[in-house]
């Protein structure tokens, strides 16, 4: 079979790009709240103010000539991440995993000089990775030591957990696992593997690479399903709280699981992607419409989460 019929996709509750933009992103997300999620520095500060754990910020390069300070910012840290505050689609992120003398070793093994780091900072600051090419800031932050739970199903890099939150209630989640094709980045567009997560019990379900269903990790060959994610209820709680924090009705929350620090909020996304549907083999629309029907969403996080799980249990029937 070559194509899916629209009617079949509709029956499966699969949401398309136009529907996401028109009926959810534009309908539930106020534009003035976008800067809170588009600028990762703002997100980080806001989260810290409200006691939500985030990767520690080592320093910020906000104008060109500060790029030469990069060496000083990272002098006490062997590993760190350089990333644009306004980056989109995981572009412009440089992960330094170790240091060898004067050289920095990137997560993919390449050795670079400090000058290269400085150049990367100036590229970020000049707006190369930001939307519309606006001047940007480069963030230098803690490199997450990822929880070994995903060791067998990732190739270098840091896997992260994406939770889709609608009206403050989680509707779907997936783990994004780096692959060789994604160059260690946890970004599905760059070839990372997406693994659906059962919202109720926090276990991985199915997988997707690109737009193809997958059962095993393409590089490690390990089975994707059945991995129980630790701190699952914390992850859901933190996601729901993030939604309150930035006041966006339709939100993607990216959480990383640190070996020592537990769940850390990496970034928020006002236009989360659609492949979570393929990863879970469940369309988003059924759950979204259920939540849309609720008149008033419960105030307390606990009530909200139990309601969210109840709805998820009801609608999460894999493609049938």
């Amino acid at each position: 079979m070559m194509f899916a019929w629209p009617s079949e996709l509709r029956r499966l509750g699969v949401m398309g790009m136009n529907e996401r933009n028109g009926n959810f992103v534009m309908a539930y997300n106020r534009r003035r709240n976008y800067p809170l999620v588009d600028d990762k520095l703002q997100t980080k500060r806001l989260a810290q103010e409200h006691g939500i754990a985030v990767p520690e910020l080592y320093g910020v390069v906000s104008i060109q000539h500060e790029a030469r300070n990069v060496g000083a910012i990272v002098q006490d840290h062997d590993s760190f991440v350089l990333k644009p505050a306004h980056g989109a689609g995981g572009e412009g992120i440089l992960v330094v995993a170790d240091r060898r003398g004067d050289f920095y070793q990137l997560s993919n093994g390449t050795m670079v000089t400090e000058e290269a780091l400085q150049y990367h900072c100036t590229r970020i600051v000049s707006g190369l990775f930001s939307l519309g090419g606006l001047p940007d800031k480069a963030l230098v932050e803690y490199m997450v030591r990822f929880n070994p739970v995903f060791e067998k199903v990732s190739y270098q890099g840091v896997p992260d957990i994406r939770v889709i939150v609608f009206r403050g209630m989680p509707v779907a989640a997936m783990v994004r696992l780096p692959t060789q094709a994604s160059d260690g980045k946890a970004n599905l567009h760059q070839g990372a593997l997406g693994a659906g997560v059962d919202l109720v019990n926090g276990c991985t379900t199915f997988g997707v690479t690109g737009n193809n269903l997958a059962e095993v990790h393409p590089d490690t060959g390990a089975t994707i399903s059945g991995i129980a994610i630790p701190h699952w209820s914390d992850i859901l709680e933190v996601s729901a709280r993030c939604a309150d924090l930035v006041g966006l009705g339709y939100l993607g929350v990216d959480v990383v699981l640190d070996r020592d620090l537990g769940p850390l909020v990496l970034e928020l996304n006002a236009r989360p992607g659609l492949n979570v549907q393929l990863a879970n083999r469940v369309g988003l629309l059924a759950g979204l419409h259920e939540i849309e029907k609720i008149d008033t969403v419960p105030e307390s996080i606990e009530d909200r989460l139990s309601l969210a799980k109840e709805i998820a249990e009801r609608v999460s029937v894999p493609f049938h």
Binding site: M1, M2, F3, A4, W5, P6, E8, L9, L12, V14, G16, M17, V208, N211, N212, L213, Q277, L278, R281, G283, P318, F319, H320
Partner: peptide, 13 residues
Amino acid sequence: ELWRFRSAVEASR
């Protein structure tokens, strides 16, 4: 998207 989500329909089959 009819191409992109084709695997959803395959899975449902």
